[in-house]
């Protein structure tokens, strides 16, 4: 039961993107087409859950016994980079079209602050292995939910006559601001 509240907490209440403001660059970069947004969501979910699990293992079985905690960030980045490379190969194999439309944003998942951020939060919150996995999955579902929602909004925005000075990214940033205002409504839920 406790895991469910943790999950709901990460997806809605303190959403990774809209409340913790992690992972904003893919939100802006990939969300102008619905298909690329869903592709990005799935890729990030895969990467994030894997890196959370491996992050926890590395922390508790390598760094802590050898008290090398100061190496934590480097190791995590190494792992995340490897997982991203692995996903890129898989996507290139399974759907070249998605690979081309995601383009530069696929390798950029490594630098996606949500991925590294969530892994680090897991450690600082002192979660158990199961909790850190749920937290990872919750964070990535929250990220994908916001990304897909945002992609739907931007696709409708693409066809409306937004004034020239606001067309494109400015109006998208305003919409993202409004979205985070909406998610504040879920505050205190958990």
């Amino acid at each position: 039961m406790e895991l469910i509240t943790l999950m709901v907490g990460t997806v809605l209440v303190n959403n990774v993107v809209l409340v913790k403001f992690l992972g904003l660059c893919p939100l802006m970069g990939v969300s102008n087409k619905f298909s690329t947004a869903t592709g990005m969501g799935v890729a990030t979910t895969f990467v994030l859950t894997l890196s959370c699990m491996s992050g926890w293992l590395i922390e508790h079985y390598i760094l802590e016994p050898l008290n090398l905690q100061y190496l934590r960030i480097i190791c995590f980045i190494l792992v995340v980079a490897a997982v991203v490379q692995f996903t890129e190969m898989m996507i290139k194999k399974s759907s070249p079209l998605l690979h081309r439309t995601l383009g530069i944003f696929l390798p950029l998942i490594t630098t996606n602050c949500a991925v590294l951020g969530v892994a680090l939060i897991n450690i600082s919150e002192g979660f158990s292995f199961i909790e850190s996995m749920t937290y990872g999955i919750g964070a990535s579902i929250g990220f994908s939910l916001v990304l897909i929602m945002f992609a739907g909004l931007r696709e409708r925005l693409a066809l409306s006559e937004v004034p020239k000075t606001f067309a494109g990214t400015p109006v998208a940033l305003v919409t993202a601001g409004i979205l985070s205002m909406i998610f504040m409504g879920f505050g205190g839920l958990v």
Binding site: L153, L179, I182, G185, F186, G187, G188, L189
Partner: peptide
């Protein structure tokens, strides 16, 4: 369960986004 007494505003905007 939330912290805001009147939630119609948030609910409508959330569903507008969807």
């Amino acid at each position: 369960w939330g912290s805001f007494p009147e939630a119609i505003g948030f609910a409508v905007l959330f569903m507008n986004a969807l």
